[in-house]
């Protein structure tokens, strides 16, 4: 069939065009003039179009955050009710009510006191948190956070997994990547060497200019150590498990609707695919008598 073939040619032309177009989109990733190490090869359950969060790991990750990270890092964009929302670490299908009514969200929120204003006296008070409250910040303000951390501001962790190249793999690598600084590197007081941290260490390096070590300085010391957090589900408290769990949890806080997004996406793609096929067949039928 002559024009059937020509349609195929044109179709493959279009596909090629789209492929080339998409390729043109790729080389956008920027390379800064720093030479930190590439993140470690590490895998997560939520990778790929079919990936899902492992709820048990999200709960373990929350525990690492609550017991370790939250001592210095705020998470201002996440509220206690989010923990019990569909897809969250403490979602329970047996309580299909609004997340703010979830007994888990309530129980977690009740452990915290948050600042408020007494409506009768106008005094500043501390009241028990409700599921609607955002995570309690460890410091009253940035100045207090800096004062308690040697001048460095611990960054808010809400979107950390989206705010660094490499995302959760970067977080995992950074937490486990602390090592002895190479000989010839002067580490400033109150700083630590980490090969996964971005930075330019040229002026702290006394060795050959061609061999400036990878990485940079970070104001946070090594936090993830074996048995630092006892997991309730008997998962061994190895450094790898702790770091992997908290990286997973931060991937969720940065992208709470990720699983919902991918599930919706699969339905959308299937619908569009069938619709495209039907439209293509209509096109073939309508044009069948026109040489073009």
């Amino acid at each position: 069939m002559q024009f059937g073939q020509s349609i195929q040619t044109k179709l493959s032309g279009l596909i090629a065009a789209i492929a080339v177009g998409s390729l043109a989109l790729l080389p956008v990733a920027a390379h800064a003039k720093t030479n930190e190490k590439e993140p470690m090869e590490v895998h997560f359950s939520f990778e790929g179009p079919f990936g899902r969060f492992d709820q048990a790991e999200l709960q373990r990750g929350y525990k690492v955050y609550a017991e370790v990270c939250s001592a210095c890092h705020s998470m201002n964009l996440v509220s206690y009710r989010d923990l019990a929302a569909p897809g969250g670490p403490f979602y329970d299908p047996k309580h299909p009510v609004a997340p703010a009514q979830s007994p888990y969200a309530k129980a977690i929120a009740e452990q915290y006191k948050v600042p408020d204003i007494d409506p009768d006296t106008g005094d500043t008070i501390q009241r028990t948190a409700t599921p609607a409250d955002h995570f309690k910040a460890p410091f009253a303000n940035d100045a207090a956070a800096r004062a308690a951390n040697g001048g460095a501001l611990p960054p808010d962790l809400s979107v950390m997994a989206r705010a660094r190249e490499g995302g959760p793999a970067y977080i995992y690598s950074l937490l486990l990547g602390y090592e002895e600084p190479p000989k010839g590197l002067t580490v400033p007081a109150g700083k630590y060497y980490n090969p996964y941290m971005a930075g330019d260490m040229g002026s702290y390096w006394t060795g050959a200019k061609t061999q400036i070590p990878e990485g940079g300085f970070i104001a946070m010391g090594k936090q993830i150590t074996a048995s630092r957090v006892q997991f309730d589900d008997k998962t061994p408290s190895t450094v790898e498990n702790e770091a992997h769990a908290v990286a997973t949890f931060l991937a969720w806080t940065a992208d709470e609707h990720q699983v919902e997004r991918k599930q919706t996406g699969l339905a959308v793609m299937l619908y569009l695919f069938v619709f495209t096929l039907i439209t293509y067949l209509s096109y073939r039928r309508i044009w069948r008598n026109v040489a073009h």
């Binding site: 279009l14 996406g265 793609m269 569009l272 619709f275 495209t276 209509s282």
Partner: peptide, 16 residues
């Protein structure tokens, strides 16, 4: 037909 093919690519970026 072309719009739908384009939307397939579009959706891939949006959802995945």
């Amino acid at each position: 037909f072309a719009i739908l093919v384009f939307l397939l690519l579009f959706s891939w970026f949006v959802f995945f």
